[in-house]
Amino acid sequence: MPVSLIVTDALTKTYGGRVTALSDLTVTVEPGVIGLVGANGAGKSTFIKIMLGLLAPSSGSVRVFDIDPTVNPDQVRARVGYMPEHDSLPPDVSAAEFVTHLGRISGLPRTAARERASEALRHVGLYEERYRQIGGYSTGMKQRVKLAQALVHDPDLLLLDEPTNGLDPAGRDAMLALIHRIGTEFGISVVVCSHLLGEVERICDSLIAIEGGRLLRADRISEMTAASDVLAVEVSEGTDALAEALTKLGLTVAREDRLLLVPLESDAAYDRILQAVADLELPLHRLDQRRHHVAELFATKETADV
């Protein structure tokens, strides 16, 4: 039976009896690219530390690669690569040297460490820059170095904490594409902690949403972004005229800003809408089945203590 990546059972962690970071978390994570959302601050870093065996749970259990990190932390850490959220790089060494050094601390022999460091830096897209001191790097380059050091020892699981932090849109795209590649081509599972739900929808195939320390939902992304049976139509002008025309055709039309929402009762709806738009010679900007979004998870409940 293939081993699940991470399995927790009623995992709970309280600090000093007052702050509950994780509460009764039971979840099974399968290999792939997994998004970890919602847990901010305490919950997220607690979960990571417990997985790495740096913290013991208050109660409940956790297994990573079917190993208990509280009993065998070294075994788990040898197979996990961690990319922290915050600044973690010394300014006065070069990336090549730093990643090589960390490779050795992961247990790689000297030559292997050098070679794998060089390869890891190539895979993340750092070329001549790697011989310059890290202090002079841009944020994007620093994020890549952090990712390279997580890869150098060939882990089976990457833990990436806010990997697109501080990156501009182009940098974010590049990082997300890289993560996607790692998850699909390299065959390494990735857990991405992010507060940007759009990103998560883009590159992850499953999701764990934690809120207030408790599991909100754990599911495949495809389940959460399923198409609904509503069609969204947008024309860049003449929205009112179109709404009228569609209503006359017997379709129920709801209005949301610039969009017209029409229930998709049958495929004929597509044709009728198209006909109406063409008849009115309106510029058709969008026609699409509405999909659900991960963000909806957080919009449903009402909590005062947020």
Binding site: P73, V80, S88
Partner: peptide, 18 residues
């Protein structure tokens, strides 16, 4: 102190280094 300042310790302790 340098290790502390640069925040490098999480990178060390997430490895098989106690």
């Amino acid at each position: 102190s340098r290790d502390m300042r640069s925040g490098v310790l999480p990178l060390y302790f997430s490895r098989p280094l106690r």
